[in-house]
Simulated scan of single mutants.
Amino acid sequence: MNEISIIDARERYDRNMDQLRALTAGELGQAVRRAREQRGLQQAELAERVGVTRMTVSRLERGEGVSMETAMRALSECGYEAVLVPKFSRVTVEGR
């Protein structure tokens, strides 16, 4: 099981962390794109796994409106899950 620890919410966020992090819809889309590419999937392949069109995956990756269900399923298919932490917190993930 992975453990997520909040190190110190007062410290500046380190954008060089290896976790995917998003504060906006656009950043979430970029994170999905990076996760998809790391997994070696094309947009059409991810779309088929999620049960949507390739255009929907494209919209998600551009930060445009798609359902929360679609975004969560896309992340899951790419091997990620969403975890909520206080904004700008530094986190470590153990148990990889």
Results as ranks from 00 to 15, higher is better:
22 A>G: 05
79 G>R: 06
48 E>V: 09
67 S>V: 02
75 L>A: 05
50 V>N: 01
74 A>M: 02
17 M>V: 12
22 A>N: 08
68 M>L: 15
54 R>H: 02
67 S>Y: 02
55 M>D: 14
31 A>Q: 01
23 L>D: 15
53 T>A: 10
38 Q>M: 13
14 D>I: 09
16 N>G: 07
31 A>Y: 02
16 N>K: 07
58 S>K: 08
73 R>C: 10
81 E>Y: 13
40 G>W: 03
60 L>C: 01
35 A>G: 07
53 T>M: 05
74 A>C: 05
63 G>K: 01
23 L>C: 13
46 L>R: 02
12 R>E: 14
52 V>M: 02
20 L>P: 02
22 A>T: 00
73 R>K: 15
17 M>C: 09
22 A>K: 04
61 E>P: 02
51 G>Q: 00
30 Q>E: 15
86 P>D: 07
82 A>M: 15
28 L>S: 04
86 P>L: 06
24 T>I: 07
51 G>K: 00
46 L>T: 01
49 R>I: 06
32 V>M: 08
35 A>Y: 02
59 R>F: 12
49 R>D: 05
72 M>A: 14
13 Y>P: 07
78 C>I: 05
36 R>N: 04
46 L>N: 01
15 R>S: 14
56 T>R: 08
62 R>Y: 10
38 Q>Y: 11
52 V>T: 01
41 L>Q: 01
53 T>Q: 10
58 S>E: 09
55 M>H: 15
19 Q>L: 14
56 T>K: 06
48 E>C: 05
28 L>M: 08
62 R>V: 04
63 G>T: 04
12 R>V: 14
21 R>D: 10
81 E>F: 13
83 V>E: 12
36 R>F: 03
49 R>M: 11
50 V>K: 00
13 Y>G: 01
36 R>Q: 04
51 G>Y: 01
46 L>A: 02
26 G>A: 09
43 Q>T: 01
20 L>N: 03
30 Q>T: 14
66 V>P: 03
69 E>P: 10
34 R>S: 14
54 R>W: 03
33 R>I: 08
34 R>Y: 12
36 R>L: 04
21 R>M: 11
13 Y>E: 11
77 E>H: 10
84 L>W: 11
23 L>S: 12
61 E>M: 03
17 M>R: 12
52 V>W: 02
20 L>S: 02
67 S>C: 04
55 M>T: 15
29 G>H: 04
34 R>V: 13
87 K>L: 13
78 C>V: 05
40 G>M: 04
39 R>Q: 10
80 Y>V: 08
63 G>L: 00
14 D>H: 06
19 Q>W: 13
33 R>N: 10
44 A>F: 10
37 E>R: 12
86 P>G: 03
56 T>H: 05
83 V>C: 11
51 G>A: 03
66 V>F: 08
47 A>L: 00
63 G>A: 00
27 E>Q: 13
87 K>S: 15
75 L>C: 09
65 G>D: 15
26 G>T: 02
17 M>G: 11
16 N>M: 11
85 V>S: 06
32 V>T: 00
38 Q>R: 14
25 A>L: 12
27 E>C: 05
38 Q>C: 11
88 F>N: 15
33 R>Q: 11
62 R>G: 07
33 R>L: 09
85 V>D: 05
39 R>K: 12
56 T>I: 07
84 L>C: 13
62 R>D: 04
28 L>K: 04
71 A>K: 08
12 R>Y: 06
